[in-house]
Every structure is written in C-alpha cells, then in structure tokens.
Design a protein around this nucleic acid. Structure first.
Lengths: 120, 120
DNA sequence: AATACAATTAAACGATTGCTTAATTGTTAA
DNA sequence: TTAACAATTAAGCAATCGTTTAATTGTATT
C-alpha cells in the first residue's frame, strides 16, 4: 500500500507522527458521542441523570423545560446509549447508563467545568 | 433562599444528590467545547493537530477536503481556543493549543476511540 | 367503561450548521 | 510591478437541530 505524498514537504516525517491514526469511521463514531453533549440542555440532563434517577416530569421541572422537549432529548441520549430507562406505573424513570463510556463522559464534564469556569 | 419542590416526591432526598450542580451557564460553556468535537471532520482535524503542526494545504490533503472548508473548521477550533496558528512566509501553520483543556480532550478522544471501536 | 395523569410522537417553525463556488487578502519570487 | 501561490472571507444552499403546540399512547384509578 502506497501513501500519497502531501503537497508540501516540510521535512517532519509526518508518516511516523500520524501512525495509527484512527479510521474516518472511528472519528465519526466518537464525534457522534460528543455531539450528544454539544447542547446545553442535553449535557445538563445527562449530568442530572448521573446524579439521580428521575421521572420525566421532575426532569422537566429541574430543567424548566416542557416535557415534550425533555422527552426529545431523552430519546437521543438513550439512542446514544448514554442513559437507560424503566417504567414504574405511570412514570418512566431515567438514569445514566452504567457503562465505561458514560462514566468517562461524566468525569470529563466535571473536569471541564472545573477548567473552563475556574472562578466558580 | 428557598428551592421549589418537584412535582413528584419519590423520597430520594434530591437536594443532597444535586448539591453543587453547576450553573446553567457553566453547562453551556462545557457544551460549547463538546460541540466543537461533535463533527467528524473537526474532530479528525483536531486529532491531526495534536500529532503534528501543518499548513492548510497539507491539512486539506490529509482530510481530502477543500481548503475553504478546512479553513472554516480551523477558524472555529481556533476561536474555541483548541488550536493555535503561526504564519511562516506564505503558509499558516496550525497545531493543538498547549492547554489543559486541549490535552484533556485529546486524551478523551483516544480513550473513546478505544471504547467505541473495540474491534479495531 | 370513563377519567385523569405521565409520557411520547407528529407536524411545523425558525435558527444553526457544513459545504460549495467565487471573490479577496496576504506573502513571496520573478 | 507582475505573477503565482497560500489562505481567508463572503454569499448561497441544503440539511440538521431544538423547540413549540397539538394529538396520541400507555397506565392506573374510580
């Protein structure tokens, strides 16, 4: 397999530097995860569900958002595998998924809050 | 300061669980960072610039994208403080910013690649 | 069965996003 | 001062996104 040379050669041995670069599909998969948390409402919902298990009405109250809007976000987070749900009577309870991925993202959020908002 | 009670009380002492919840503005700031990496092209560019310093033409070649499209992404990443640039003659070189935030995100990407694509 | 409540879904909308093509700016070399 | 190359900017466009309102589904109670 031959690699196409770059238009400019600055003599940096780029092939070694970019060795084991992930496939484009892998970058896409990771960006799909990041995009889930790329919305202020959704990242707050995810954080909430990392700290408690709650029904949609209470999540809506905590978020000060309509329940259809919250439901919409919950569906996306669930499709992404970041949260899980269970029905108990009339109510559906949501919480963060018990996965490496969800734990990593939760930890990441806490770290970024500390870094990007040092004054608070 | 009084906190408004939730519509439903499931007896979980939610006030304690949600203690030191970040402000809405902090969630917004963190989600702004995540959104930068919520695009397959941009996350790949950022990864590249974590591993080498390159000019726009070479980034375009590596990405197989037009230079205006790449320039557009570079501007966003730079505005977010994730990359820096320097001009040398006719060319502008970009690389990842030397900040805690950028390092954390780079590390995070590598971890997520390993988690979400275990077979590769 | 009928009612009430919780949650989801559907349709519609304004706003944002990522890319394309074309024009423009910045720098170097002839 | 041209000419050529690198990079950015601008305008336009289809596609996606987040929310709202209204209708629908699911469950429990009377």
């Amino acid at each position: 397999m031959t690699k196409k040379p770059l238009p400019h050669n600055h003599g940096q041995n780029i092939e070694r530097q970019l060795d084991h670069m992930p496939e484009t599909a892998e970058f896409q998969a990771v960006s799909d995860v990041f995009r889930q948390l790329g919305d202020g409402s959704r990242i707050k919902i995810f954080w909430l569900l990392c700290h408690c298990e709650e029904c949609v009405i209470n999540i809506s109250a905590l978020m000060e958002m309509s329940s259809p809007a919250v439901s919409h976000h919950l569906r996306q987070l669930k499709a992404a595998g970041l949260i899980v749900s269970r029905r108990d009577g009339k109510e559906v309870y949501y919480k963060a998924a018990d996965t490496k991925e969800a734990q990593l993202l939760h930890h990441m959020i806490e770290e970024l809050v500390a870094i990007t908002c040092p004054a608070l």
